[in-house]
Design a protein around this nucleic acid. Structure first.
Lengths: 136, 136
DNA sequence: AGTGCTTTGGTACTTTAGTATGACCACTTT
DNA sequence: AAAGTGGTCATACTAAAGTACCAAAGCACT
């Protein structure tokens, strides 16, 4: 929605500016030229926006598209994934236990399993690996 | 967004058709007008590309640029920043010490200072906060 | 030469993190 | 019904992580 507003306002402003310039040259009695210039300007503006969006679309999809399949491949359960998400947010085992209404022991078990499944030695390394795998 | 583009292109096409009759007299009058139109087209094309890239930048790829100003504001030294980077890569204090040819004690000192400066309780939280501040 | 600052390093201590093992329960599969 | 699976929790232990306090070397600055 923000893009739409930006594009619209940019179009309106450019149109206003162009037709305001046209008012000066009314004296020279050549209205058609200003209109043609305005149209050309708007057309190429839209072309610029459209082409740029298309070229960025490929990169966008790659950077956003995350998780799902690899989580299953790594045999990470829902509970373990919940714990992983909270780990990446910087919570301690105790805090995670309080958030999920579980004991710290349970969290430790989940973390231990996560470290094995992600092939990590520490929780910080697990975060890094999970982000590389686009799980987080 | 698709509707917006469609409506606008339809409007512009109709405008072009309406003022196509006037274009004959333009060409015969002055050749410089074509150059002006070309310049306007290029300029607005660039504006379109630029605005679109800026609007997409906020939503999608935000953590590319590191905010070196905030590092200074937080009074984080170069050494501390080096340690912070290695922490985010999942290394232990001992490993960081080996990489930087420092003792583990020194790393602990740096980490402790970093936690205070980043207002974090744990190294994992420090990573999260640093990424929010676009320091990492 | 003294001041201030970063960096470095140490000791001693407390707190988290992580491992290993075993156990219990709920639920599904065979 | 028996076996398997996932989640839960506990104990006991080792390993990191983090805190507090101190101290000294290496600088830049004036």
């Amino acid at each position: 929605m923000k893009k739409t507003v930006l594009v619209f306002s940019a179009l309106i402003i450019s149109l206003l500016l162009l037709f305001q310039l046209g008012q000066y040259s009314i004296i020279s009695k050549d209205m058609n030229i200003e209109i043609v210039i305005a149209v050309v300007a708007v057309v190429f503006f839209i072309i610029g926006v459209y082409l740029n969006k298309k070229s960025l679309h490929k990169n966008r999809v790659e950077s956003i598209e995350i998780d799902s399949k690899k989580i299953e491949e790594l045999d990470i359960s829902k509970r373990e994934y919940e714990v992983l998400q909270l780990i990446s947010k910087g919570f301690s085992n105790k805090e995670i236990g309080e958030k999920l209404f579980l004991s710290e022991s349970t969290i430790k078990t989940h973390v231990s399993n996560l470290l094995v499944k992600l092939d990590a030695k520490r929780r910080t390394q697990a975060i890094q690996i999970a982000k590389e795998l686009r799980i987080l």
